[in-house]
Structures are given as structure tokens and as C-alpha cells.
Simulated scan of single mutants.
Amino acid sequence: MLTPRLTLITQTADVPEPVLLARLSAFGSLPPEDRARVAVQLRDPELSGGALHALGRRLRDATAALGASLVVNDRLDLALVLGADGVHLGRRSVGVADARAVLGDGVFVSVACHSVDEVLRAAAAGADAAVLSPIFATPGKGPPLGPEALREARARLAAAPRSVALVALGGVDAASAPACLAAGADGVAAIRADFGGALPAPRAG
């Protein structure tokens, strides 16, 4: 699985499933190599296990049809059952090596990070991607780190023994995503933002 340029994170209380699926289908006009850089991340922790599994099945079908990827938050069991392409690990999740022991060495693993130091620890642990947040103001998520944190992370990763893809999360939308990519992010992730079927590109200059 390629590092996604854009990850749409599910939160059906704010973005109902039909809206999410419509946003996903809008990427269908992109060439296959660009559709492969789109992912959906199954989150929705408030759903019951059965409802989360059912949603995951529908998203697995939709992403497979598009040529996009499916990533599952934390739940290794669901990732395994759904045949997900990757898993996203939070602070209370298992470690990267434990996730790969369950899901296989080839599974894509991203790790939630809230500081540049945590990005470096994710790289050292063998993660494929570090999701740094919040970059911009997001309700209930603490002070924003700003694009400067992405620049610092990219600079410090250059001297690290092992690199890791850098993903920006938190208040990111179609207008601010290019600034994140210009600051050193390899991709962005969002819950509420609508990207209109276009992959974000770095801002010129």
C-alpha cells in the first residue's frame, strides 16, 4: 500500500455514510495511480462492534471498487476480517511489531503522534507513517502545532536512522492541505473536509 496523499476518516455523526461515499466516489475520475493514493480510515469508536463491522464491509467494497485503500483504527481483529490494507494505532493501541505479528509484515501501519518527538519514536518503531496532529485548530484537541511542526519533523527525520511518511491531521481542509504538503507532509487526513474529488498538491513556492 502506498502512503495515501489523502485519508478520509469516518465519523458518521458529523459526516453520514452516504455523504462519505459520495465524496469517495468523486475521486473516480482520477487516473488509477491517483486513486491508489486515496484511503478511508474506519474510526467511529462510538459504534457497536456489529455496526462498525457492517460499515467496514461497505467501505471495503467501496474502496476496492475505486482502487483506494482501507485502514482500520486500532481494531486488529476488524482489520483482519475486513482484509484491510492497513491499521492506525493510537496511544493505547498495541505496538507496531505486535500489529504486524497479527496482520502480516506487509501491512501498512500508521501511528498517532502529537509531537515531533513522537514522530521520531514512530519511525524508530518501524511505522510506515506518523500522523501528526493537531496541525490547525480543532475542537477538543489542544493547541495547534502549526505547519512549523511538519517542517521540524521533516528536518529531524532527515537525520534519523529510519524515515517514516508524515501525515498532517487536525483542521486540515482543501485550502490548507497544500501548505501542509509544502511544509513536508507526504499526505493529509481529514474528517469533515470535502476535497471535491481532487488530491491536494503542494503549494507552489
Rank of each mutant, 00 (worst) to 15 (best):
G196K: 11
K141P: 04
D85F: 08
D186R: 00
A204G: 07
L157S: 03
S93T: 06
V72N: 01
P178I: 05
H114M: 13
A22R: 15
R154W: 07
L157W: 04
E46Y: 14
V172S: 09
V167C: 13
V107H: 05
A123K: 03
A97D: 07
L145P: 04
S176Y: 06
R35H: 13
L166C: 10
F195L: 13
L42T: 00
G184V: 02
S115R: 00
V111R: 15
D194P: 06
L2G: 03
A99H: 02
V188D: 10
A183E: 09
G49P: 00
N73M: 06
V102S: 02
F195T: 09
R43I: 01
G126W: 11
A68C: 09
G197S: 11
R58S: 09
L89F: 10
L150V: 08
E148T: 04
G86A: 11
R5L: 14
D44Y: 04
G205E: 13
A39R: 14
G170H: 12
V96W: 02
A198V: 14
N73I: 00
A79H: 05
V72M: 03
R154N: 05
L78K: 05
C113T: 15
D194L: 11
R23C: 12
A26W: 09
L21H: 06
P139S: 12
T12D: 00
A97T: 11
P200S: 13
A158F: 07
V111L: 13
L52R: 15
V167F: 09
A189T: 09
V19R: 07
A62F: 07
P178L: 07
S69H: 14
D85E: 13
E17G: 02
M1L: 14
A65Q: 12
L55E: 00
G50L: 02
L66W: 09
A99I: 03
V188E: 09
L181C: 11
A193G: 05
D98Y: 06
A62D: 06
